[in-house]
Design a protein around this nucleic acid. Structure first.
Length: 271
DNA sequence: ATGGGCACCTGGCTGC
DNA sequence: TGCAGCCAGGTGCCCA
């Protein structure tokens, strides 16, 4: 499912519902996620109070008075806030029940998602420690992108999806950002001019920012904290539009597989 | 260091 | 109707 805009939309949805609330029950139905849920998960969270809900890359950081819960939604995960009386469905793997009578429920059919509790600084956690800058932050700009691309033979599509370079750009928004920047996905990173790097950084920021404002992209099963889909799909220029006319020039959108992931681009608008 | 491929898992769709 | 095959918003890890 989710790339950065969908995770951020989830964060904004769950934060007001759980901030300041205390966990009065923890139910784990399936421990076999990407990494098994540790044995101490329930006892660590029981009785804890939510201080804030933050995001780093595609991880949600639910900060409690006692530590931090790191949640990743993988490919098919979602987090919803429901009335605690609502019966769980298949693939609802764990619940945090709050003193408000609401439940934070993690749903993930493919189980590529994860949940870790840590009492230490979450930014020092092995999963977060080596992550690159946030795309919407001030550390990420054309100059940074241009410097990082020097000597790199990798294709631009894979380059912008590399979480050691910049986080949060997944398969949908990589294609969309390259379209907005007018850059062909198979061009080598080292061939980026300074101006093109600037355009690409700006395109990444604009596409992610606009997707967040629209509630993210729902292709198949993504839903926000209220169970509603995102509407950015209607604004996609190329993703899953193979053979359809480019919204700018009318040329048929093309599709190819790069590094085992589908890539879409307009052969006329992108060079 | 860099780049590429694999693995993890379920469900939905396509085509024979 | 049944079923095999393929594909899907991610990413850590292993290999050359």
């Amino acid at each position: 499912m989710p790339e950065l805009p969908e995770v951020e939309t989830t964060r904004r949805g769950i934060a007001p519902a759980i901030a300041g609330r205390r966990v009065c029950d923890v139910l784990v139905r399936e421990r076999r996620l990407r990494w098994p849920i540790e044995a101490g998960f329930e006892s660590a969270l029981l009785g804890a109070t939510v201080r804030a809900v933050e995001r780093r890359a595609k991880y949600l950081l639910i900060r409690f008075d006692t530590g931090t819960l790191l949640v990743h939604l993988g490919m098919s995960g979602s987090l919803r806030v429901l009335d605690a009386a609502v019966a769980p469905r298949p693939h609802d793997h764990w619940d945090l029940v709050f003193d408000s009578g609401r439940v934070l429920r993690f749903h993930d059919p493919r189980r590529f998602g994860s949940a870790h509790f840590t009492a230490a600084d979450p930014l020092d956690h092995p999963l977060l420690r080596r992550l690159a800058p946030e795309p919407l932050g001030g550390d990420f700009d054309g100059g940074y992108l241009h410097r990082a691309s020097r000597g790199r033979g990798v294709a631009l599509k894979a380059f912008v999806m590399n979480s050691r370079l910049v986080v949060g750009v997944g398969n949908i928004y990589a294609s969309e950002a390259l379209f907005r920047a007018g850059l062909a996905p198979r061009r080598a990173a080292r061939r980026l001019s300074r101006a093109q790097a600037q355009a690409l950084a700006q395109a990444i920021k604009s596409v992610l920012g606009e997707a967040i404002e629209t509630g993210g992209t729902t292709l198949r099963d993504y839903v926000n904290a209220d169970g509603a889909p995102g509407y950015f799909r209607q604004k996609l220029y190329v993703y899953e539009r193979a053979g359809e006319p480019c919204r700018v020039c009318g040329t048929a959108v093309r599709h190819a597989v790069q590094a085992r992931r589908s890539t879409y681009w307009c052969p006329h608008c992108q060079r």
